[in-house]
Amino acid sequence: MNEWNLPWEGGCRCGQVRLRISAPPLLTMACHCTGCQRMTASAFSLSAAIPTEGFLVTKGEPVIGGLHGSTRHYFCPYCMSWMFTRPEGLDMFVNVRATMLDDASWFTPFIETWTDEKLPWASTPAVHRYPKFPDFSDYEGLTAEYAKKAVRPAAR
């Protein structure tokens, strides 16, 4: 855990919602789906899958935005920054938008998802690419590989 220089702090653009990460990411990713493109007003979203027990909102009350279905996207109620997602049926992790971290300079996506919807010019240094999502059976190997090869934040 020390090699990850935890805990990390983060928050929305206006500072009304703050969060703390106390467990290393299971995986980092860039999602190219058109939904993420629209919610970020960019070519893709960046996220780190954080074990649920290592994620805590320390200030404020985020609200559900984006789509209001069973996958829940959480936003600051004031500045509307998209902060994190709790994917449907996957309660073991929270997808934190990497740029919500106070220091995201170390972040590199390890996988890219929904590349069949990506903008032609958009590219990342991700090691693995998937037209949609990886098969569920692939995640164990991906998380093990990520744990060994991932870029870690520099010591503070």
Rank of each mutant, 00 (worst) to 15 (best):
M1D: 05
N2A: 09
N5Q: 14
N5A: 08
P7D: 04
W8E: 03
G11Y: 07
C14M: 10
C14T: 00
C14Y: 07
Q16E: 15
R20D: 00
S22I: 05
A23R: 09
P24C: 02
P24W: 01
T28C: 07
M29P: 00
H32C: 10
C36V: 13
Q37V: 12
Q37E: 09
Q37M: 09
R38M: 14
S42C: 12
A43R: 02
S45K: 02
S47I: 01
I50C: 06
T52Y: 05
G54T: 04
F55V: 01
G60W: 12
E61G: 07
I64E: 15
I64H: 08
I64N: 10
G65I: 12
G65K: 09
S70V: 00
Y74I: 01
C76Y: 08
P77S: 11
C79F: 04
C79E: 12
M80G: 12
M80D: 10
R86Q: 15
G89P: 06
L90Q: 15
L90Y: 10
N95H: 09
M100W: 01
D103Q: 04
A104R: 01
S105Q: 10
W106H: 05
W106K: 04
T108C: 07
P109Q: 03
I111H: 02
T113R: 03
T115F: 02
E117K: 13
E117A: 08
V127Y: 03
P131Q: 04
K132F: 11
P134H: 06
D135Q: 13
D135P: 06
F136W: 06
S137A: 14
E140F: 06
G141L: 05
T143H: 04
E145L: 11
K148G: 07
K149L: 15
K149R: 15
R152M: 04
